[in-house]
């Protein structure tokens, strides 16, 4: 019991969770607004990707508490992520090249 209380002592409180959720909602709104803006395609694509990344990291670090958790958990989660993103980029490069 004492161990559990100690392990959760560094979790953020409801106020921070609500602030994070409001930021996530606002970022989603900006994403949708950027989608409908008539801007250079590459700028919009980069804005959308960066906003998605920001939302992703906020949920992982604050809602999933990875910021306060053991680094080994971060390794378990981010190692496959790096592998997967590398594979996706490589596949995209290869297949787009072949089909051209």
């Amino acid at each position: 019991m004492a161990h559990i209380a100690e392990s959760h002592a560094n979790h953020p409180g409801p106020r921070l969770y609500i602030t994070i959720a409001l930021i996530l909602g606002a970022l989603t709104g900006i994403e949708v607004a950027a989608f409908f803006l008539e801007m250079s395609s590459w700028i919009v694509v980069w804005i959308l990707l960066l906003l998605s990344l920001a939302k992703f990291l906020m949920v992982v670090f604050f809602f999933m508490h990875l910021r306060m958790d053991d680094n080994r958990f971060a390794l378990l989660f981010f190692a496959p992520m790096i592998v997967m993103v590398s594979i996706a980029v490589a596949l995209l490069a290869l297949f787009q090249n072949i089909t051209r």
């Binding site: 994403e31 949708v32 950027a34 989608f35 395609s41 590459w42 919009v44 694509v45 959308l48 990707l49 998605s52 980029v89 490589a90 995209l92 490069a93 290869l94 297949f95 787009q96 090249n97 051209r100």
Partner: peptide, 22 residues
Amino acid sequence: LVGAYGAEEHVEEAGHAAAAIF
């Protein structure tokens, strides 16, 4: 968002950019 925004054209551009990286 990226898919519906760019459809084929931008995905192809992304593919070429990735191909250049590799």
